[in-house]
Amino acid sequence: MTLVLENLAAGYGGTTVLRGINLVVPPSSVVALLGANGAGKTTLLRVASGLLKPSAGRIHLEGRDVTGSSPHQLVRRGVCHVPEGRGVFPSLTVRENLVLQSVAGNESDAIARAVSAFPRLGERLSQLAGTMSGGEQQMLALARAYIQSPRLILLDEVSMGLAPKIVDEIFEFLAMLAQSGASLLLVEQYVTRALEVADFVYLINRGEIAFAGEPSELDAADVFKAYVGVGL
């Protein structure tokens, strides 16, 4: 599914975080979004999934203007946003989390799919999500990207704070998702890994797109500069 962000501006309260963002996620591709903390990556994803209303600009999904739609409406169109932190309901059990992630009526099917993707979840179905380890919680959060068979997946630093082994598992999972034909918009701290899987890269610096292109065009120095905050 194609996502197009056109001249987007967004912020919180009186502060503008994003300015003049133009970004495209073509169908069946992986797009990486890199940048320093506070550059606006999370904000961009939140706008794309409908959590935050842009103050200017438009959002097009598969050619259709969806600016101003609320997140649950976009979910129905096939968008899935895995937020930063652990996107689980801590006081619900794993099973209940999966129930909420599934499409109404298809709960048992969804649980089966989730377990097949992450067998470890299968052992913990009755456990409270808040009591699981960070990695397991992230798996649970990611399960949604599989259960709902979304066509556009927005991933916000899904590897943050996890052990390398788990990060490996997660990236394998992401690769599987990409192969299934979904588009991925990936915000990552693991720059190298992100560049390995990405088809395209955007670099965002202080709320504006500083670079857009293929990973091969991006060199380490540019990335470093962007992260340090120096203009390109």
């Binding site: 979910v75 946003h81 309901f89 801590p90 949604r144």
Partner: peptide, 10 residues
């Protein structure tokens, strides 16, 4: 727990 997350789950 998390109304925003609920929104995201549909």
């Amino acid at each position: 727990d998390d109304p925003a997350l609920l929104d995201l789950t549909g």
